[in-house]
């Protein structure tokens, strides 16, 4: 009951927030994106111990696939390239159809890529995996910047949000909230199943997991697919929200989004369910404060923040709480006499 009450309250707050504070709708949309970032990174990095700097690859992939599907469904390629944003807006129904098909296509692409790339990259361990994925994210951005079909280095404009679907900010805020909520609930369910224990085992000692006969490759690939699936959808939505895709700065932004997702998960507590959500919230608020008050130096300050968090607070909020109050997390000695009482 307690849990249901808690979730209901959070849901009400999240649904009411953009209506109560309309000027913060876009901020809230970004907050939900950050939550998706942190949750999906944590599924692979925190729960499975595969610290990836390249998850942003799926985000960028989703962004491009969604945008291209939307463009090619309703516009002429030549015309779109030259006239970009000044074309007529689509009827709302077409916009929604294009967007849904685009998001579906991007999710499928992401899962396929995760399977193909995972077959090689997920066999790397530890820091080799981390640096290989770093290379993957940046290489993808640089390659995208050279492909004319998706606008090359000068970027790609996404279809303009049509009239008749309500306010743009509110629409995307709720869309991203829904995505964050679904991501959270799916991961919550996965972590309580056999899958959750298996990826935890891989994190703690992959050699042991192999020696015990776990299907490690299968579990790892599935975890990466789940992560990529939600990131690609998030990417597709963000492309439409921002309205313009730059290959290096918005789509495959390894040095910003790619690092932020890691940082948010660590800040909240790696390998916990609520940690990434908490971390994303704290980080997003901090970042907005930096943006408002540090004019131009905010990125320098973010670099410093990364170092400070990693060096002085690597266990994160939830990790700290767990070490401080282990009882609350159920880590206690039970006397044999309790056995009868609990059963």
């Amino acid at each position: 009951m307690n849990v249901i009450l808690k979730y209901t309250l959070i849901a009400i707050a999240a649904l009411a927030a953009p209506l109560l504070f309309p000027e913060y709708q876009i901020q809230l949309a970004w907050l939900w994106l950050m939550v998706v970032f942190a949750l999906t990174w944590d599924a692979v990095g925190g729960q499975m111990g595969y610290n990836s700097f390249g998850n942003v690859f799926y985000f960028g992939l989703g962004m491009y696939v969604t945008a291209v599907v939307q463009r090619d469904l309703y516009y002429d390629f030549e015309e779109y390239e030259t006239l970009a944003g000044s074309l007529d807006t689509l009827p709302p129904a077409d916009y929604l159809t294009g967007m849904s098909l685009g998001l579906a296509a991007s999710a499928v692409c992401a899962v396929l890529c995760a399977i193909v790339l995972g077959s090689g990259i997920l066999r790397l361990r530890g820091h080799y995996f981390a640096i290989c994925t770093l290379g993957l994210g940046i290489a993808a951005g640089e390659i995208a910047a050279g492909i004319d079909y998706i606008g090359a280095g000068s970027g790609l404009v996404t279809p303009v949000f049509p009239d008749g679907l309500g306010e743009k900010g509110l629409f995307f805020c709720y869309l991203l909230l829904a995505l964050a909520a679904v991501t959270f609930l799916v991961l919550r369910w996965l972590y309580t199943s056999r899958f959750g224990l298996a990826i935890n085992a891989i994190r703690d000692d992959e050699d042991k997991a192999e020696a015990m006969g776990l299907h490690t490759t299968r579990y790892k690939t599935i975890a990466w697919c789940v992560s990529g699936f939600f990131l690609a959808i998030a990417g597709g939505i963000m492309g439409d929200l921002i309205g313009f895709i730059d290959p290096v700065d918005t789509a495959f932004a390894g040095a910003t989004f790619g690092v932020w997702m890691v940082l948010m998960a660590i800040l909240g507590g790696k390998g916990t369910l609520w940690g990434p959500v908490i971390g994303a919230t704290i980080f997003h608020v901090t970042q907005e404060i930096f943006w408002t008050f540090l004019f131009g130096w905010q990125r320098v300050a973010l670099g410093a923040l990364i170092v400070i968090i990693v060096v002085f607070f690597p266990q994160g909020v939830m990790g700290f709480a767990r070490a401080r109050w282990p009882d609350r997390f159920g880590h206690r000695v039970e006397s044999v006499a309790d056995k009868g009482a609990t059963q």
């Binding site: 224990l197 085992a201 050699d207 042991k208």
Partner: peptide, 8 residues
């Protein structure tokens, strides 16, 4: 000895 240290 190898066990999964961060699991119960």
């Amino acid at each position: 000895t190898r066990i999964y240290g961060k699991m119960t």
